[in-house]
Design a protein around this nucleic acid. Structure first.
Lengths: 180, 180
DNA sequence: CCTGAAAAACGTAGTGA
DNA sequence: TCACTACGTTTTTCAGG
């Protein structure tokens, strides 16, 4: 009578394909999640309750992970943005290394393929705070070196898009890439 | 009687410091922007209208840039995540290079200091789509080479935090990094 | 999936500290 | 200036078809 692992399969966010309505709703909600169901409805051609039902399902299945307020980093004194490559001896990915994801300065933490092991996106108040974080990273056993790419200017930064949101350069009717 | 540029100064998002209430509200809204003003009020110890007033100001001043639905990349077939370093001859940052931020696959685009010029965060359906994007990048005049770091697993990814959200490991009073 | 109605939340006053 | 109380309106939500 317990909940078996297989039972959750459909909540993984990759089952139950999304139709055109769902994708359209996602696009609208990514842009502005404060829109009313009524407005969403008339945008996609559905009634408000129908929209509500779909959005609820999108949240339940995990297609919508959360709806968040995106705040201006400058407003909270997080002026410095940097990407930090972390190289380790051996297979890295130790619990100690993963634990540095707990620091509030770390916004992203990925294992990557390439000439480095781990990649961090880090936002701090200033260079001094970044230095402090790097010091803590070097304290982790196995860490050999780090390479930091300090961001000089951010030209674009947006959340995950459901599909082609911004204007798509070539308006030819979704033609597949040319292959001969 | 026109609106001079100086008049908008206070809407830049860095003026008018945030007090403890504002920061607390930001933290709650980053977690879940669907909370009602009443709930926010009792969380921070304010009445609902007062909260509404503050949130409205936070949006007006740009501290809250937008409230968005964060969607699961897998749900929209964006399985592959990669960070692409773009090296250019000379000072790069040409209009043609900046234009590749228009592609929907590109989520972030930063000028960085370091051994590379531009850094992209890119999300595509598969490696073939990434290849297509790289081809378009190489078409940009001035682009010498690219280095791609394909993400194997994402251990953490969260929006901009107003302050220390997660539990703070070392409660020693912000000790400076050891230097000898 | 749509139409209608109950319930709750929102937004705008006006009032006082 | 800022926060609280009260009220009109919209939105959300649940019923039935």
């Amino acid at each position: 009578m317990g909940l078996e692992t297989d039972d959750v399969r459909q909540n993984d966010g990759r089952t139950r394909e999304l139709d055109a309505f769902d994708r359209k709703l996602l696009g609208l909600l990514v842009e502005d999640a404060t829109r009313s169901y009524a407005e969403l409805g008339e945008q996609v051609g559905l009634s408000a309750p129908a929209v509500h039902e779909r959005v609820k399902r999108l949240k339940r299945t995990g297609a919508i992970r959360q709806t968040a307020a995106l705040i201006n980093p400058a407003a909270v004194q997080k002026t410095l943005l940097a990407f930090v490559h972390v190289d380790t001896s051996g297979w890295g990915k130790t619990p100690e290394l993963l634990a540095i994801g707990k620091y509030p300065e770390v916004e992203e933490m990925h294992s990557v393929a390439g000439d480095t092991c781990m990649l961090l996106k880090v936002r701090t108040k200033d260079s001094r705070a970044l230095e402090g974080l790097l010091a803590r990273i070097y304290d982790v056993p196995g860490v050999i070196r780090t390479r930091s790419y300090v961001v000089l200017s951010t030209h674009m930064e947006r959340p995950v898009q459901p599909a082609n949101t911004s204007e798509w350069p070539a308006p030819r009717q979704h033609a597949p890439p040319p292959q001969r």
